[in-house]
């Protein structure tokens, strides 16, 4: 009998403790949600501002560009070209002597073959890289904007396994 009373007391105490902790958690939870929500809104606004201000935009009208093709032997062929195209894929397709093949993927056009040279990442970790004015490109060929005087490179590259 005595034992039962003790057990009941313990259970009651536990319940009270748990209830107060749960209440504390709810208050803390509300605060946590608020902090996270404010942080998320701030980050989204910041990202949109950065994107609008700093993402490169294509230039309209005629532009003169160079496209350098570096093949799997490291040999360069330079193509000079004038174009009204706003994005690189369209401009490259206009260039005589530069044959591009590939397919539309989830992220955009994926280059597989240039002038008969195929890069296949699944076979030997090779791929066609795009450089823009000497720097590694951040865009796919389809969404790479063009401005006058830009120097692009299409380079056959392989990742070390």
């Amino acid at each position: 009998m005595k034992k039962t009373v003790t057990e009941e007391t313990v259970t009651e105490e536990t319940v009270t403790k748990e209830r107060s902790r749960a209440e504390g958690n709810t208050q803390k939870g509300g605060k946590g949600i608020l902090i996270a929500a404010v942080a998320a809104v701030v980050v989204v606004v910041l990202l949109i501002i950065l994107s609008v201000m700093f993402a490169p935009k294509p230039q309209s009208g005629e532009k003169s560009i160079t496209v350098t093709l570096t093949d799997n032997n490291g040999e360069d062929t330079v193509y000079e070209h004038n174009t009204d195209a706003e994005y690189l894929l369209e401009a490259v397709r206009e260039i005589e002597g530069l044959e591009l093949q590939g397919e539309d993927k989830e992220y955009g056009f994926y280059i597989s073959t240039v002038n008969g040279i195929t890069a296949d990442y699944s076979i030997d970790q090779s791929y066609w890289a795009i450089y823009v004015n000497g720097e590694y490109g951040s865009y796919g060929i389809e969404s790479q904007p063009i401005t006058d005087g830009d120097a692009f490179s299409l380079v056959y590259e392989r990742d070390a396994y």
């Binding site: 990202l47 949109i48 950065l50 994107s51 993402a55 490169p56 720097e135 590694y136 951040s138």
Partner: peptide, 14 residues
């Protein structure tokens, strides 16, 4: 390059 790469990817981050 890091900044350019980050900014190019912002739509994907969103």
């Amino acid at each position: 390059t890091a900044a350019a790469w980050w900014i190019a990817g912002i739509p994907f981050d969103l």
